[in-house]
Amino acid sequence: MESAWTALALSLKVAGCATLLNLLLGVGVGFLLARVRFVGRDLLDTVLTLPMVMPPTVLGFYLLVLVGRRGWLGAWLHDSFGINLIFTWQGAVIAASIVAFPLVFKPARAAFEAVDGQLEQAARVLGVSEAAIFFRVTLPLAWRGILAGLLLAFARALGEFGATLMVAGSIPGKTQTLSIAVYEAVQAGQDDVANTLVLITSVVCMVVLLAAGRLAPGRIANQ
């Protein structure tokens, strides 16, 4: 039982960090794709959407190749800063972030595209700087759509299994998240532990989905 709460705490920490990371990256990339026209924009959108359709184990493999001890990024991180991401909870955060990323940047892009450009022009003529326009007009009007995406991403990160297992492994108390603990419990024949874990996971996911539903764009059309 003790380990169930440890696993839940770890899952919430990993999913929380991954969501925070996606808040910055997803909103940034969503805004870029919505507002800046450049060659290869559609290709970039497609590549960034891949994590939604690719098997998480494949993503995990890519990540190992990239940030593993011999991966080009991993080797550099290790040699320059002594950072090792494999078999750490930070590695799990990266895996969860990538898997959940399309769930944030897609709705963020759509939300930014739905903001009437004339409102930004009005703000410009009123003398407000570009950065201030983003925080005072664009972001408040796109916020609900972004938030709904973030909640879905949080739920997805919470349930992440494949990529996380590949990158971070299953070290109890260190990288064994809720969904991995369920797998381990079933493998070990500990049905009562599995029951508890599954129940906790289901409740948390329900809460997140309910929250996301309340924020769905349809509800805010008339705000």
Binding site: Q118, Q121, A122, R124, V125, G127, V128, S129
Partner: peptide, 10 residues
């Protein structure tokens, strides 16, 4: 536009 000090009615 910020520096032009004009009013605009859309």
């Amino acid at each position: 536009p910020q520096a032009r000090k004009v009013g605009y009615l859309f």
